[in-house]
Design a protein around this nucleic acid. Sequence first.
DNA 1: GTGAAAGCGCTAACAT
DNA 2: ATGTTAGCGCTTTCAC
Lengths: 343, 343
Amino acid sequence: MTPKKYTLQDIAELAQVSRGTVDRVVNKRGKVSKKAQKKVEDVLKRLDYTPNLIARSLKRNQNLVIAVVIPIHNEHDIYWHQCAQGIAEAERKWGQFGIILKYFHYHKNQESFASMFSQAIEMDPNAILMAPIHYEELKTLFSDAEAKDIPIGLINTPIEEIDYMTFVGQDYQKSGRLAAQLMANLIGSDPHNKILVAHLGVDTDHAVHLHAKEKGFRAYFDEHFPGLKIDTVSYSSDDVVENMDADLSNITGIYVTTSKTHLLSDYLDKHPKIKVIGYDLVPKNVVQLQQGNINILLNQNPKLQGDTGISSLAEHLLYNTDIPQKRLFPIDIVMTENLESYC
Amino acid sequence: MTPKKYTLQDIAELAQVSRGTVDRVVNKRGKVSKKAQKKVEDVLKRLDYTPNLIARSLKRNQNLVIAVVIPIHNEHDIYWHQCAQGIAEAERKWGQFGIILKYFHYHKNQESFASMFSQAIEMDPNAILMAPIHYEELKTLFSDAEAKDIPIGLINTPIEEIDYMTFVGQDYQKSGRLAAQLMANLIGSDPHNKILVAHLGVDTDHAVHLHAKEKGFRAYFDEHFPGLKIDTVSYSSDDVVENMDADLSNITGIYVTTSKTHLLSDYLDKHPKIKVIGYDLVPKNVVQLQQGNINILLNQNPKLQGDTGISSLAEHLLYNTDIPQKRLFPIDIVMTENLESYC
DNA sequence: GTGAAAGCGCTAACAT
DNA sequence: ATGTTAGCGCTTTCAC
């Protein structure tokens, strides 16, 4: 009933050679005579042999190192903080199978990233997971990496110049389009509608994502509500408090492209009618959602992204499994009534 | 730098006993003297020993059987069809680690379920994954299962009378509440709003879920729009075509509690203003969503539920990992603009 | 080019 | 109660 699992030994006996020879054939190590090669391959095909991956790992019994190249972050940088949590979780999960992580934290600028990435490559890890920063000047660096043939997982930002093995992240432009569709539902088709796109607590490394989100957002409205007035503001965390007041007059909807929507809480208390869409289930945002100041949060799930990034590389290293080249996370829509199911 | 992984042998040497004794302590098999026990435990604690699970699996090297008790289904029963796909996928994934699935398909009635469940228990599987049907008469059956001490995973329907190890599914009442919140957004607060709750293509086994969804849906509207008129209809697949016409007059919103929303396509073509919320990304629904007949689909993700159900039991059997007692899937909101990210 | 043998860490059967 | 040993399936080294 259960299809018998054949072992190297079984194959060897049937092909009348030794285990060693079968192993050389299976793993294409060469040094096998044409004749033996054929005998073994025939049996292999006939019996549909698949190697026992557990035995293989046990025998290997070496640590596999994944270099993790991500920005330095603190607890205020919630996106990376949660992402790092996911990575740490995956580290615990895979640690018992010999997966080791080495961190290379970079400051959010070109030099620092380049330096850390180089250091990561130099130590010859078995794989690299990184959140890259895209600079023209780094192209040669990326091709250096390829030469070493180290599998690279990209997280957060796909860079097509890199020959990566897998990308984990989201489609930011689509995210903006979705936000627009939701906003349209929320504010209806009143001709007096006026919308604000707010990049709050802006980091340079996020700029490209935020831009993509805004682009998608505006594209949707251009297609469906061509005349609509949409303004954009961009403030660092500190500037928000000083500057937003003026921007908020007559606004009917705000699309905050970062996870810092909660910075607006005081204003939103005073303008309860404004519809607000933001990002990420960080505690402060969740409170605002429950209080009704924020209408919808889009969930980027950085924690799961971190976990998935490590897990795919780990599975690949341990079991040589194929992993999808792109892992685009769904863009989850979170409202009060399904909030609980995402926590 | 890397914390060394200690082996049984290491512990044995340090505690000055044999591997066998350490093994007995670690696995609590008894037959160890107080003195040896203590010596070993001290070392164990000091070195923070964790057994090598890969070696353990290799040694065990036996097939672990999971009995799968789910309804008979064909390609028209899309929910179970997709669920079965997820189960099959998990079977492939875990097959190489010695996890074997045995299926017990039941007809959707009490006798058949009882019979299949009994058969499943009789074969003494290492675990059972089942989509139970809840009948008072089956209580004794469930307690039989407990006596055998077989871990049970429940999928789709949680039954508190069963002492299950894990449940994979959704909170149907919350799902209804969410649908209501979305519907409220879609139709606005026009006093002429009239809503229809439609249970289409009804199966007996689904009745309890559908009821829960409707309950949540109505509860939300009771809280937020007390006077609103909400009707309910319940049709088998065949009845839909004959009967819906009359029900649709003056309706502003329809909430279809099953994955059969697409049955309404002809009507919706004629009534483009009606807002529609349904379930599941089955191809026919997706088409209707793209065409604008359906506004929102709630994604129950049966495929992932199937996969998760098997995977948690498999991980538990292989690696003795703890698994969460309840795995409530998020209730995903799918609209045209984020559809792609769920496919 | 091939085969024999050791050994990864753990478990279970068997001696003592 | 404790120690010893064989062996799970694979890889790798070392003779031949």
